[in-house]
């Protein structure tokens, strides 16, 4: 049976090379993911784990106490994402375009300086900005005072109207290096012949960017958008480091990550409920899955790609 033999040989070949990645990924990602979803179908009564079907989701979306918090967190999360899309990515693209300009001096210095915050820990960024913006010890009020703009200062992190925007911008500051680097790499990969050909046709400077470079880096912008989406809807660390798990003031900075943490592990007087926490985690997974699917099937498959 030569046919079967050959099939087995091919299997071994694939298995050996895939095994390490598959095993590690299954152990640390796939299994916990499915176990979380399984956990969300249970609840605990009298120290016993009981199967309750979709009851946790019914509570999450039907019970006022839970659903108010969930929609609040989801709304805040959307705002968090929109600010990243409107501020972080355009600035990242602009920085990359400027950096790739052949006549710019000290380009590698700027590149490193802008990228460095990305490698800092969330905790450091959270505490540093908390201190900078603090009305008591911070340098923000003093700096604004020095240029005569003290009246513009407000305790931003303590005001419900500003806190979420402030933290979004802190996060933008930290991560603007990522889209910059990805776009920068994409811009460098555009062959000189194309640009030279365009120059011959009389397209130079700004219009070269809009007409030649931008269409060529659109796939990278798509990737960046989806990375931002996934990262923002999984975000937790910065809010937790700056505002704590209560995501104050009055839950105005509460996003799905902090809401999940509070429900799962408990905080101060609230006792942890792993089952409700899992239900929220599953909802987060569903939201991200839908977002990524829309991108993959709706946008990426229609995008035109150029081969050089």
């Amino acid at each position: 049976m030569p046919k079967q033999n050959r099939r087995i040989r091919i299997k071994w070949h694939i298995i050996v090379f895939l095994a390490p990645a598959v095993l590690v990924y299954t152990a640390v990602m796939v299994y916990p993911l499915f176990n979380t979803m399984r956990l969300s179908l249970f609840t605990e009564t009298d120290q016993q784990r009981v199967f309750v079907g979709l009851q946790n989701f019914r509570t999450l979306f039907g019970d006022d106490v839970w659903s108010d918090q969930f929609w609040n967190a989801l709304g805040n999360n959307l705002q968090f994402f929109l600010i990243h899309m409107l501020v972080q990515n355009p600035i990242g693209i602009a920085l990359a375009a400027i950096l790739s300009h052949p006549k710019l001096r000290f380009a590698s210095f700027y590149r490193s300086a802008i990228f460095i915050p990305t490698i800092l820990s969330f905790v450091i960024v959270g505490f540093a900005w908390k201190l900078i913006l603090s009305p008591i010890w911070g340098i923000a009020p003093g700096m604004l005072d020095a240029v005569g703009l003290k009246s513009l200062y407000a305790p931003w992190l303590g005001k419900e109207a500003y806190a979420l925007t402030t933290l979004s911008l802190v996060s933008v500051w930290q991560f603007v290096g990522i889209p910059m680097m990805l776009i920068y790499a994409a811009l460098l990969s555009i062959p000189d012949e194309i640009l030279e050909a365009a120059e011959v046709e009389g397209i130079t400077g700004q219009s070269a960017f809009w007409k030649i470079k931008l269409p060529l880096i659109l796939p990278s912008i798509g990737i960046i958008s989806i990375l931002t989406f996934v990262a923002n809807f999984n975000a937790f660390d910065l809010i937790y480091a700056a505002q704590g798990a209560l995501a104050g003031p009055d839950f105005s900075t509460d996003i799905l990550g902090t809401f999940m943490y509070r429900s799962f592990f408990g905080f101060q007087l609230q006792l942890g409920d792993p089952h409700m926490g899992s239900a929220i985690a599953s909802a987060m997974f569903a939201i991200i899955l839908v977002g990524v699917s829309i991108y993959l099937f709706g946008i990426q498959s229609r995008m035109r790609r150029y081969q050089f």
Binding site: I136, G158, P249
Partner: peptide, 16 residues
Amino acid sequence: LGDGYEAQTYPDSQNI
């Protein structure tokens, strides 16, 4: 309460 008490944390108050 002092200026910017809205963003003042518990350790801030102790230190002040």
